[in-house]
Nucleic acid binder design. Sequence first.
RNA 1: GCGGACGUGGCGGAACAGGUAGACGCAACGGACUUAAAAUCCGUUGGGGGUAACCCCGUGCGGGUUCGAGUCCCGCCGUCCGCACCA
Length: 875
Amino acid sequence: MTIDRYNARAAEIRWQQAWDTQRVFVTRNEDPRPKYYVLEMFPYPSGRIHMGHVRNYTMGDVVARYKRARGFNVLHPMGWDAFGLPAENAAVANKVHPRTWTYENIATMKAQLKSMGLSLDWSREIATCDPKYYKHQQKMFLDFLAAGLVERKQSKVNWDPVDQTVLANEQVIEGRGWRSGAPVEQRELTQWFFKITKFSEDLLTALDRLDRWPEKVRVMQRNWIGRSEGLHIRFALDPATTPDGETELEIFTTRPDTIFGVKFMALSPDHPLALSAAARNPALATFIAECKRTGTAQELIEKAEKLGFDTGIRAVHPFDPAWKLPVFVANFILMEYGTGAIYGTPAHDQRDLDFSNKYGLGNTPVVCPEGQDPQTFVITDIAYDGAGRMINSRFLDGLSIADAKEEVAKRLEREVRGNHPVAQRQVNYRLRDWGISRQRYWGCPIPVLYCASCGVVPAPEADLPVTLPDDVEFDRPGNPLDRHPTWKHVDCPRCGGKATRETDTMDTFVDSSWYFARFTDPWIESQPTDRMAVDAWLPVDQYIGGIEHAILHLLYSRFFARAMHATGHAGVDEPFSGLFTQGMVVHETYRTSSGAFAAPAEVKIEGAGDARRATLVETGEPVEIGPIEKMSKSKRNTVDPDDIIGAFGADTARWFMLSDSPPERDVIWTEEGVQGAWRFVQRLWRIVNDAAQFSENAPTARPHAFSEAALEVRKTAHRALAKVSEDIERLRFNVCVAHIYEFARSLQAVVTDSPKPVAPDLKFAVREAAEILVQLFHPMMPHLAEECWAALGHKTLLANQGWPALESDLLVEDTITLPVQVNGRKRADVTVARDARNVDIEASVLALEAIKRALDGKPPRKVIIVPQRIVNVVA
RNA sequence: GCGGACGUGGCGGAACAGGUAGACGCAACGGACUUAAAAUCCGUUGGGGGUAACCCCGUGCGGGUUCGAGUCCCGCCGUCCGCACCA
């Protein structure tokens, strides 16, 4: 009998329909089995899925299908991060409404995802642009507002001049907008903020408990939160030098130990004292204006030279009333951090030293490194920030840095001026509140009103959702909501007078900060979450997505979980107990002689190694093979998942995405790799069919005894089962793939090489092995697995089948083969009984020809036997 | 500058917890089948030496610990990523 080639296209559609009709992947909240929530970061509906999606969703699907087989009630939902700027850009470019554009994209991408055969519960699908979703987001905004977790304040914001909107600090990358890439400017605006800083300490310390997160991500978040302990000190100002009404200057320092090395004070150009001093000093006012000018582009600030201006004001040293310090305005002092003012200790801070050297303020070293002579220790160009003993510091001399910090804090805390202590210990964070106002149409409206007499008024809950108007124009830059003739004009719900709506919408990162909670009960209309459901399902057991969200999305979601907890919408603080960040899909780039990029589909490759040459298919023009880079439209090195699925089927694409590269690293998409995956699909199909034929009429009951050959088949199968199970648990999919290749190859050898007729026990063993093989690759290639399962005579869906039971007895061998080393070099193998005594092992080892030769007739000095592992003979 | 990760054949990579380095795949080469090709199957493939049994070298470089080091320690070199005037 000849076996037809496996027709992936036809089979895949058939099995997808079968899963659909039988509602296999629809999850019930009432299901009593233990829960497992696996989630991949939901996509932005940009138009079509790309290979990055294929990789991400395949990994999630492997975990979901595996856990389902292991008996868990698996929640594996999907939705759409559907608000955002590209929809508006499309509206400008193509005169299509953002909603239309978005939903058309969703339809396309949903069909593409379905063609991948993912075990998703589509009944829970949500789109964040749906008023049924953002209604609840508005409700939570109001709850957060009432709970003091939202505030409206004026602040300097990052303004993206291309997108014409505000960006959060996290969205500014190297001084440029994360989406537009335009240099970001600073502007003063009144904005809505989520008070993420209220949770700074908890967001930081809780990272230690996220032991199933990549260390890299935790480090990045730790740095981002940027906790530092220090002292808040009030310096008195010399009245003779100070503008009216000003008496003191507050600073924050993490190095109070260096207080006797201080040479100057420096203020941010935005500092109130700087401004009041500027009011009577035109030159200073000019300097400040200058700072702000260079300060419009973040990029320039970072490269700018340190500049200062002496205000003429003098501060008084807290330990010496006679010691006066010049107060400068300096361009490198940030108003947003600490108090916006510092004291400068040039010897021990590089920035202060640069500044001091420029303005001739000198420096006095106050920390002397171990082994240095304090008399000769001088600082010229490089500040010293290491450990050491205090010098030149009066009562601190001889103390360690830590003791000196403590001593200064103690003394200044005790000292009182104007009923307040002169200094207080303080913890500062780099983390800022999350500004969420965006001057955009296609986002969730912020549900507040402004009334001339009542001020800021929250929208009444009965009016939620505050929906977006449909009739908007995108013919001009700026926010269409603001220009809309009627939308923003409403009556004040408090006084009935005239009021206007907030026309800013929320940052789309708000939408994605709680979708994982909504998935647990997306049907409930009365509230954002059903507490029974959300508390039962959260946290997400395994979250999978790109490293690019290490800070933004993941930190916001952690904040949201806490805020939802505080307002009664959820019972957990951490949304994701397990996190995995997968690598990118990369591909070679191709350039024609004109410098234009060519797409892989347009290029023909010939030769191998150094002789590899590329030409354009159409013209035969030679093409330069360029570096391997992340697949992107601009470099045209993308491969369309539809093309791959069309040509080879989803299973081939899925298998290739899991092969070779470790999941956290980048994977290089190659035509050869796809071909290899496709060949293996066909090979599996043949092996399973051959095995089915081989084991025809196999006994259904397990034989009492097995021949050596049959036993070997069973051992191989169960060893593979053990390894693959373990490696799926550890998300080491590339290693799973290798084990499956190995197992398949050995099963194939048994089926081809065994003499006929076949004994019943071997039939049984081969049949068992074939079933295990199919079940092992099922999470990775579900369609092929169903087809094979049917070929093995099963009438039920493999998707509903449990994971095979491991017979661990089969993993234990009666005899073991140990490598034998002489002086750490392998010389031979020795096969002994598993429980052989060491003396017997030693005797067998020393009897080996190769060992005798290596010892050259001399007795060994020592024989080291590591049980079950290795023997080393020391000559 | 600060912080982190990594460095293994021609390539992607494997090696539990200090115990046989190079699993598995790709590419390449040789062979079988075929009129031929495709497809499939089998074999070889870190470097060097030897007819062979076998021997020597080998996990970025230099040291160290150990019976034994890809793995641990110290010092370099290189690559990638994140943060970047945060006082």
